[in-house]
Nucleic acid binder design. Sequence first.
DNA 1: AATATTAACTTACTTTATGTAACTAAGTAT
DNA 2: ATACTTAGTTACATAAAGTAAGTTAATATT
Lengths: 109, 109
Amino acid sequence: MADKTICPKFESALNILNKRWTGLIIFQLLEGAQRFSAIEGNIGISGRVLSERLKDLEKQGIVKRKVYDETPVRIEYALTDKGKALEPVLQSIQHWADGWVNKDTKSIV
Amino acid sequence: MADKTICPKFESALNILNKRWTGLIIFQLLEGAQRFSAIEGNIGISGRVLSERLKDLEKQGIVKRKVYDETPVRIEYALTDKGKALEPVLQSIQHWADGWVNKDTKSIV
DNA sequence: AATATTAACTTACTTTATGTAACTAAGTAT
DNA sequence: ATACTTAGTTACATAAAGTAAGTTAATATT
């Protein structure tokens, strides 16, 4: 597969939302820090993939991981400034959805 | 996998960009109608998946397919109004990328 | 007339990503 | 010593995407 690279920054940004679940994870965290199991339950992602995504997002500086040394251990994931800056993107998606997505559209296959 | 459905419209909108390549396909078509092989070459997607995506996007009313009965046949894909309405979404992604994505970031893995 | 060319796909097969469910580690409480 | 809890990880199964060759229909070429 040849990489045509229209605009590298744009493509790299698209690759974030491009991946399954990342949009919903960020959407969740826009409401405040959340724990692993909370995100897992709230959006219905598998732990296996959530773990993978959170590592990616952390590596990209979008999410930060805080460890609270309680028992049992509590770990919270929160958005960084870079992550919070994605709010307008999610909002524009929401806005488009309000205007154009049919109420009855359930699964887009 | 339990479906928690935060906001069905929002989720269904996210599912569009969520899928690999759809963002880039729409980005391409924002510049005007394009033929199958042009999209294929411009973004480096495989024909197999492009065919699949275009069918999905057509089914969702985001893309329309026009057949020109020439020889060999010419088929153009263009955005519908619903599709064009996604421009602000792509723009907000571009804007975020300009502000936050490192120039050197090539592949986000 | 037979062969070649072109666009837009499709098919068969391989590789990668995701889902599922069971398991691990550390620190308590019973 | 055993059980409980969170935050994962591991092994395995299924679904999605990549690759490359093949198909169809209308000419154009030899």
